[in-house]
Write a protein that binds this DNA or RNA. Sequence first.
DNA 1: ACCTGAACACCGTTCAAGT
DNA 2: ACCTGAACACCGTTCAAGT
Lengths: 230, 230
Amino acid sequence: MEHHRRRAPRNSLSREGILARAVAVLDERGPAALTMRGLAESLGARPMALYTYFASKDELLDAVRDHVLADLAPEPGEGDWAERLRGVGLDLYRLLVSHPALIHLFATRPLAGHEAADATEAHLRVLREAGFDRATAARAHLALLHHALGAATWEVQLNAGREPEPTRGRRRLALESMPAERYPTLRDLAGELVTDTVGEQQFAFGLDAILTGLRARLDADGSASFHHDL
Amino acid sequence: MEHHRRRAPRNSLSREGILARAVAVLDERGPAALTMRGLAESLGARPMALYTYFASKDELLDAVRDHVLADLAPEPGEGDWAERLRGVGLDLYRLLVSHPALIHLFATRPLAGHEAADATEAHLRVLREAGFDRATAARAHLALLHHALGAATWEVQLNAGREPEPTRGRRRLALESMPAERYPTLRDLAGELVTDTVGEQQFAFGLDAILTGLRARLDADGSASFHHDL
DNA sequence: ACCTGAACACCGTTCAAGT
DNA sequence: ACCTGAACACCGTTCAAGT
């Protein structure tokens, strides 16, 4: 048995180590549990030790977000442009959903624009190679990103919530207890709204709808299929 | 001149009044400014007075979210199903964007399912009347909601940020300073990414893509166009 | 440079008390 | 029932100090 906790044996701390610990705390105990004091404690250090590496908690949170975003696979997979975009979308969705407590960082802390540059570059390139003009490629990129962000946010919320039932269960009960005269459609679809609109299948549904819409635009709009210079 | 601040002259507080004040604080000074102590102060009361109306800050935040959601126009407008869905989507997007500080409540606090029941009922009914089967209607409903949530979250982030430049400007600078050899497409589209992928136009782009995708599904899939009982 | 201790100005919330 | 005062157990962060 060792002592309950020794002090940090100088130079045991690092930006990387602090960030990894922060992500672990977030994943295991949720956003409220991530305090400078608690994080320092769990690293065997005093609160102020963290300020050697991060100027403030805000800066640490930005770094945490960037640290997770860096895990985004930079290369799209195989197939035509739609299949490649589909793959990138799923990767992003999975990343967001795999860190439930981080979703509020993405929803809350503005990105400067360089955090996922490799993935963004690859995504945009697929769109340009598919034949979209610059403005349309930019918009399509953002539309797909928005959908992943929104779907992941929703999914994380449904899986959140305390014991015994997560939010998903509370939601089902709420839907089933709505007055049927006033909310006939809602009541009729209560089952589908809780069981079918969930997880990757739901995300893929919206993703495929967007991709179908983009393909229609590409086919219809001659100006989008000019030869381009890439 | 009156005294700097009188005490609440008993019964001047109410759930409604507290919620309205909370939304105002959020809109004017941001999420960090909403504290139980500060909110009470701005109502001329002591912190603990609020606990007569809300059991905790968490419960107050849920009530604030529901209070704002109640402003959602319950009735879709004119036109065919796609035009109606478009209108509902725009209403939701505008509502979310008009309360920037509230977006993190939507992204953070799970909905039980009854908060926007009127709007949800109307939305689902349009989808059913268009001919979508139950599972597809539920999925389409959520896909449209996800996109509005994601787009609004992104837009709010871009408009956020401190003086002198909001995040939008920082983002432009970040994109333009990326190394051109490694990120040629990103650099080429930097202008479009900051100016074109913004606001209602960007939201409408994604919305229309989804609607086009849904229409294609309706046309292609015979099982979705069965007569139904509504 | 890296880390600590003590202190400051905050939080949300409990508890007992006043009307 | 509605509101207050004092207190508790927290926060993030400053500042001066140690190595």
